[in-house]
Nucleic acid binder design. Sequence first.
DNA 1: TACGGTGCTTGGAACGATCAAATGGATCGA
DNA 2: TCGATCCATTTGATCGTTCCAAGCACCGTA
Lengths: 336, 336
Amino acid sequence: MRATLSDVAAQAGVSRQTVSNAINTPRIVHPATLERVMAAVDALGYSPNLHARRLRTSSARTIGVRLEPVADGVHGVLLDRFLHAVTEQAARLDRHVLVFTADDADDEVATIRSLAQRSLADAFVLTSTDHRDRRVDALADSGIPFVAFGRPWDEGAAPHAWVDVDGRAGTREATEACLAIGDRVAFLGWPDGSGAGDERRGGWRDAMEAAGMPANLDRAVEDDPAEAQDAVAELLAAGATAIVCASDTLALGAIGALSRADAAVPVVGFDDTGVAAGLGFSSVDQSLGDVAAAVLGLLHGEPDHRLVTPRLHRRAHPRWGLPAQRSAAADGKDAS
Amino acid sequence: MRATLSDVAAQAGVSRQTVSNAINTPRIVHPATLERVMAAVDALGYSPNLHARRLRTSSARTIGVRLEPVADGVHGVLLDRFLHAVTEQAARLDRHVLVFTADDADDEVATIRSLAQRSLADAFVLTSTDHRDRRVDALADSGIPFVAFGRPWDEGAAPHAWVDVDGRAGTREATEACLAIGDRVAFLGWPDGSGAGDERRGGWRDAMEAAGMPANLDRAVEDDPAEAQDAVAELLAAGATAIVCASDTLALGAIGALSRADAAVPVVGFDDTGVAAGLGFSSVDQSLGDVAAAVLGLLHGEPDHRLVTPRLHRRAHPRWGLPAQRSAAADGKDAS
DNA sequence: TACGGTGCTTGGAACGATCAAATGGATCGA
DNA sequence: TCGATCCATTTGATCGTTCCAAGCACCGTA
């Protein structure tokens, strides 16, 4: 049987409560006693019974995260990595992670309410927040602690904690890296209206203007490799010598267009998924570890926010013949 | 405040224990009383305090699942989908899912032991089991309930519950579908020695031999699109008119080779990941929902096993010009 | 000497459920 | 009529922790 507080207390010759204090509020117990108690804890291999603690305190020190239905693979991988990072950070803070599924936003809110009320989880992470996200208001009203991964795209939203990746900075770095070696950098993104997409386009535009280059090679398509392929063919015809994309999915299509045209043009994706690793093109890495750490940091404080700067993962692949890419990698950080 | 057992008992005019029985062992309470109790439960919106229950019973009705580090994206997506399916099935059985990370197999075993001993989770799912998997023996020795996703590839392993996908049946179906329309079906797989890879190659060989075709167009490369591309170029040169692959990653490379060669040859992948959806090639779907259901079914029974038959997800994509693919889709299920 | 304060420790109660044993009736055969 | 058996329900104890109010030394000050 596992040792209990009383066992440790007996071993150390003190009361239960003193052991409890030694563990939870060490500063209020006498140093000598503390040492004796800790010795007993080690000797018995004691670790507190979390169920008992949770019953008493009605808090679970557990974070609830919804597993989204994996629609397209690329997005899925991203959230998977995020979940991994959150779980790792949570363990570091002696917290657990409970996952759940939900059919839609309303169902998610209902499930979160249920989990929170039964204190199976006492804080939540919202992913894929979008324009006028009703989950945000619902949870804020209920007073349930949460952090959104994704900035509030409209001003009307209730003030809340959020963390987001600075997509603008990401594409800016990617564009600057291309500018440092090539000249005519094109952007392949999504149609206007998606907050994240507009930000990413903005980063490219910023970098082009800062370099005094015309930001005129620009196409917008749905997040689909086939559409991307056509668009890139046009961009190449228009004289593009480097392609910065809003996602790895688009980059995948771009690579396809290049291989058809036998062109050696650097392509940079976004998200740094397995596709980028597999095909060996550079991609902007969202540094989800940093995001997760920021999320955990905000979970139990005031409504606040963090903007995490992504990093360009420069990659040279011998096969796909992207000399520009290779030299960028060799250059190190002199781009910018 | 939330209603407790005593509240319900008072409302229904019975004792705590009777309410407890009504909820946990309804058959031993008098029908009339049961009805009265349930009415009270509804009226008060009662739901049991799980922490109290867990403290008393020291069981959590929770399944522990390790989040693997996402090395390559394709594999990652697969486990993500599996986790989603497990969580969904678990909810159906009124169970929760706790996730955790671990650095390696030993760390995983240690973490599982810790979670099990503190009864934070009382059953576990092992993923990516491989040859001579030490986790299996360690957990079997400790008497910790678990189900492996992946069959035991060696005979020496301790008897345990497992579920696996019948990869052989999957590539067999894929090959038969290609045979029904093309003639010379090639296989692109992994080097000998990986159990799953050998099975998948076996399915192709089975189908070829059953059709009286020579099974001689066969290449083995690492799971890398670039290598796959070269191999497929050779296969095409050798007269292949259809390519069945052991993974979507390989299929991705195959598609690349086709687009270079401008060949309209059906390619079939394995895992049905986002890449397959994005590029529009057919792929064998592991039906992870079925796998998850099987896993949950085995979690609390005797050591047993299930082999889930995957299904070919036939897909016709207008862009990639794969007429064979398209007609296969139209044929429906006449490809045996 | 008495008194209030501070630092550390203590025992009892409570969190909300289940377990184990006891109770009170009804039914039935001897 | 009595005891045995069964059914439905109740009572008291318990799981292992934290909360709470009180206890006890010891100190400096009046």
